[in-house]
């Protein structure tokens, strides 16, 4: 029981980062994480220590994100573009601009590509883990990650010289 809570606790920063990158809205992201944790506690008895708690939590959070998104789409809620969370690089306006470009480029991807890339490249999930979170085959995860990288690289190529990014 204590191990479970410790594992969940260890995964929270990662879950929150994923939620923030998905929603670009601190309140929505924190709600998503809190909701995910409540559900994890609800379903705690269903969890079997066969897989990583972290992957299980990502799946809960992701499913919540998807259902919220569907609900918002049905209700016709428009994304608050003006209110979107923008990253700040400490004392570095140039880096801040670069980060915001990354944010804009990510936003231009399909949500499927964005989630796959965030889970694999940022949160370090394997294709298999990401596949269980997203509910698709591992090969699909690989395709989405490849397309996301290609898409971002093309978008950022104009403003971010490859030599510098390397």
């Amino acid at each position: 029981m204590t191990d479970f809570l410790a594992d969940v606790e260890a995964a929270i920063p990662s879950l929150r980062r994923y939620a923030l990158a998905l929603t670009r809205n601190p309140d929505a992201a924190d709600d998503l994480v809190q909701d995910c944790l409540e559900r994890a506690l609800d379903k705690r008895s269903l969890w079997r220590p066969t897989g990583a708690v972290r992957t299980w939590l990502f799946a809960i959070l992701h499913n919540r994100f998807v259902s919220d998104r569907r609900r918002d789409e049905r209700r016709g809620v428009m994304a608050e573009i003006d209110g979107a969370l923008e990253p700040e690089a400490v004392d570095n306006p140039v880096a801040t601009v670069a980060l915001r470009e990354v944010g804009a480029a990510l936003e231009a991807l399909s949500v499927e590509q964005r989630t796959a890339l965030l889970l694999v490249a940022v949160e370090g999930l394997t294709y298999g883990e990401a596949a269980s979170v997203l509910g698709v085959p591992a090969g699909t995860v690989m395709s989405r990650v490849a397309r996301a990288r290609r898409g971002l690289q093309q978008q950022l190529a104009g403003d971010v010289p490859l030599a510098r990014v390397k």
């Binding site: 990158a21 601190p26 809190q34 980060l99 990354v102 990288r149 690289q153 950022l156 490859l162």
Partner: peptide, 26 residues
């Protein structure tokens, strides 16, 4: 190299978004 650079940029971006302290309610 460009793809790896994309990964690093996205990671920096996500880390920057999550730089704020975890709210106490979580």
């Amino acid at each position: 190299g460009a793809f790896s650079a994309v990964d690093r940029a996205v990671k920096r971006y996500a880390d920057a978004l999550a730089a704020s302290a975890l709210p106490s309610k979580i």
